[in-house]
Write a protein that binds this DNA or RNA. Sequence first.
DNA 1: AAAGTATAGACCGAATCGGTTTATGATGCA
DNA 2: TGCATCATAAACCGATTCGGTCTATACTTT
Lengths: 209, 209
Amino acid sequence: MILIDKFNNIPVEKQNTIINAALKVFGKNGYKKASVNDIAEAAGISKSMVFHYFGTKRDLYFYLIELCGNLIVGEVQEKFDPGITDFFDRIILTSEIEMAAAKKYPAAMSFLTSFYLEDCEEVKADIQAILAKGEGDRQKIAFDGTDFSKFKEGVDVKLVLKMLMWITDGFVNSTKNNEMQDYDKAYQEIFDCLMLLKKNLYKEEYLKD
Amino acid sequence: MILIDKFNNIPVEKQNTIINAALKVFGKNGYKKASVNDIAEAAGISKSMVFHYFGTKRDLYFYLIELCGNLIVGEVQEKFDPGITDFFDRIILTSEIEMAAAKKYPAAMSFLTSFYLEDCEEVKADIQAILAKGEGDRQKIAFDGTDFSKFKEGVDVKLVLKMLMWITDGFVNSTKNNEMQDYDKAYQEIFDCLMLLKKNLYKEEYLKD
DNA sequence: AAAGTATAGACCGAATCGGTTTATGATGCA
DNA sequence: TGCATCATAAACCGATTCGGTCTATACTTT
């Protein structure tokens, strides 16, 4: 039985506990300062089990990268609909995708952003390679084909876009600290926020729904 | 000559380099995982100099807490005006305060938030004591006496407030990564953002200025 | 009972930790 | 000039922690 199969053969619930612990510790501390001790403790298992399942710290790290990558790609493929052109509906869509990912692995986003900015020499090269391969701009996927014509005259759409990014970023940040369990409530908050903006930034003729 | 005086006697520019390096490393890693080696390297001095100036890692940490605390308090006392009751003017005011602080020590906010959430046993008790003393709610200072009557009917002011917090939080976060030097430009972005919201969320009779 | 498996804890050498001592060169003052 | 003080970096210290391995034990499966 080869390393990672051992991990795949334990109960899924336990797998998720370990994955979430590892995502959290790596996400918070970055590769170098994240210690296997911390991960094991957060997962409630002994350190030797981590090595038993994954071989090395490095292998665990790249296992998580692939896991999260597939998770996001999967969610996008499942949920994303290029037929939706409304700006706010697009934002809602991407929020839903992120929310679904966070529901499965709460620390996934924290991990992915830390991974994106990782600069530890020991893993930097491989990360650059991975990032280069998936260079299909998030921004492009998210906003290509979006209809910007519904905004009132004088509204700086680029600024709105930037603002929305800050909002979602700040929101994700605020949920990172307090253990947010109620994702539906969280989603409702973001949704209300978007509706408020839509209502006040769109021309009136587009506000029927 | 007592420890910290040695630090006060070196050129101010060098002091600031060291302070900023320490704020950055502590802010990023938290107390425990921040190493004096990293701080010294970021500051471009040898590790022994850090101990020469501050005695211990712990002393340096609390020196920074007091420094940043005084910095913020000073900025608030200098800039805050309870006569300003307009919601957005208040937000702008607090943004200006934060921006002024960031201009002096770019990593100050990062450090203060990490300090606020610090849970390392070695310093936790003293931090709790400090936080308890300054329990004059930020929120209260920021919004007591604010005039919320200018908003359009149906605008959920609480939601706006929450949104604004996310925006500033997300904005600060986005500046943390890329070395933002141009604070005036950054300020302009936040300012534009607030004006956009004000223009679209206030009743029309309040939009003269 | 034998053989294999999951697991925790002891353990390893190497690296890093916070912190100290030492060596060196500059500075100031006599 | 000579002596003392200082700033500074590098070498160094014991202790801790690191990533990773080994061992002992309890539990399954046969």
